[in-house]
Computed example of a mutant assay.
Amino acid sequence: MLQRKMMAGSVFSDDAHKVFAASYPALPAHLTHSLAGHPLLEIEALAELAARMRPEKLEHNAAVDLPLGISNADTPANGLSVHDTIAQIHECGSWVLLKSIEEDPNYASLMRDVLAEIEPLVVPETGSMLRPEGFIFISSPRAITSLHFDPEYNILFQARGSKTMTLFPVADPDIISQEFFEQYFAGGPRNLPWRQEWAARAYPISIVPGEAIYVPLLAPHWVQTHDQVSVSLSLTWRSEWSFHHADACRFNRRLRRIGVSPRPTAIYPKDNKLKSYCQRALTRLGG
């Protein structure tokens, strides 16, 4: 169980708890929180955090005027170091991602406080909160995060500036094919191609400091900041269901490679345990 150690008071209001409980795990939710203005989420503190982090935990690129469906390989560099990007974030048209912030003791404490508060709502639905991770996005005005999906449950907390996240139905088969899932869980990219006709099924949520978005597992989405520098904290976790889904995708890839057309993986609340256990057994055997 996660244990609260650092923060006094609640991160979420009673109303936010009710909204989250009514939405989790399959529907997006617009929440409120008390993290805006937290000293660990100020630009100066984040620059110091980035200086302490291992280079492989830092990511940055140009992020303005990008196509929604740009591939991971085609995402342009900005010609700056990550530290210079943070220093010039007001004007360099980029975003910076700080990954695995739970490796820093202060940010680990913050994460424990937040996730422990919603744990009683999560566990009855999807079981233990497994492999919690934290990410921080520092973004220039009008920066775009292209269309993609995530294999984790995620709450995105806005601490500075504002942005709009545009979400689509979980595992929408027109947007994410089974072959794309299989490729991703075999180590492939997560960015998705874009078709304009998908805009009709979009669900945009705009957030300002003190607001958050719960992003369901496997829900395609893209993001654009507004006219100010943006700082967002993303806290994620997995479930046993999510790991079974991933292994079932890997098993389907095995079947496809020997000429079998497998049934699509099931979406929550149905499970994928049989395929998952087959995949795990074959992996243990070295297959």
Rank of each mutant, 00 (worst) to 15 (best):
H30E: 05
V170H: 04
L156D: 01
T85F: 11
R253K: 14
L167W: 00
A143W: 10
G286Y: 04
F12Q: 10
H60E: 07
Q158N: 11
E103Y: 02
I138A: 03
D150M: 00
F251S: 08
P25T: 10
N154C: 03
P55K: 13
A63P: 01
E182I: 00
V114F: 12
V215N: 10
P76A: 15
P209C: 12
I138H: 05
K99G: 08
A143C: 12
A219T: 04
S23E: 05
L274H: 09
R201D: 10
A26E: 09
A77I: 08
Y107I: 01
E44P: 06
F157R: 08
L233H: 10
V114S: 12
S234M: 11
L121G: 01
D271L: 12
E59I: 14
L46V: 04
L167E: 03
V11A: 03
S162P: 00
Y214V: 03
I136W: 01
P204A: 12
Q3N: 02
A219C: 06
A29H: 02
P124F: 02
D174F: 01
M111K: 10
P262E: 14
I138N: 02
E117T: 06
L41N: 03
V229T: 14
M7P: 00
S206C: 13
K18I: 11
A248T: 10
G188M: 01
R250Y: 02
L218M: 09
E59R: 13
P67E: 14
G127W: 06
L167Y: 02
L2V: 00
R253Q: 15
A199Y: 09
R238S: 09
A50K: 10
T225N: 09
T126G: 08
E44R: 14
D104L: 02
G79H: 09
Q178F: 06
L27N: 10
G69C: 06
V215F: 06
Y24M: 12
R257L: 15
G286T: 00
D14E: 14
Q279P: 04
A29G: 06
M1Q: 07
E152S: 12
L255A: 15
H148W: 03
V123R: 15
L68M: 15
H83V: 05
N106S: 13
A171Q: 07
Q279C: 13
F251K: 05
I89R: 02
N154P: 03
R195S: 08
I86H: 03
A22E: 09
V123Y: 13
V215Y: 02
E197T: 10
W241P: 07
P132W: 04
L156I: 01
L98A: 13
E102G: 12
H148D: 03
T164E: 01
L58P: 15
S140Y: 00
L217D: 13
L147M: 09
Y184A: 08
T225M: 09
R280Y: 12
H221N: 09
H245K: 11
N272C: 04
A29C: 09
K57F: 11
A246T: 13
A159D: 05
E56A: 15
S234R: 06
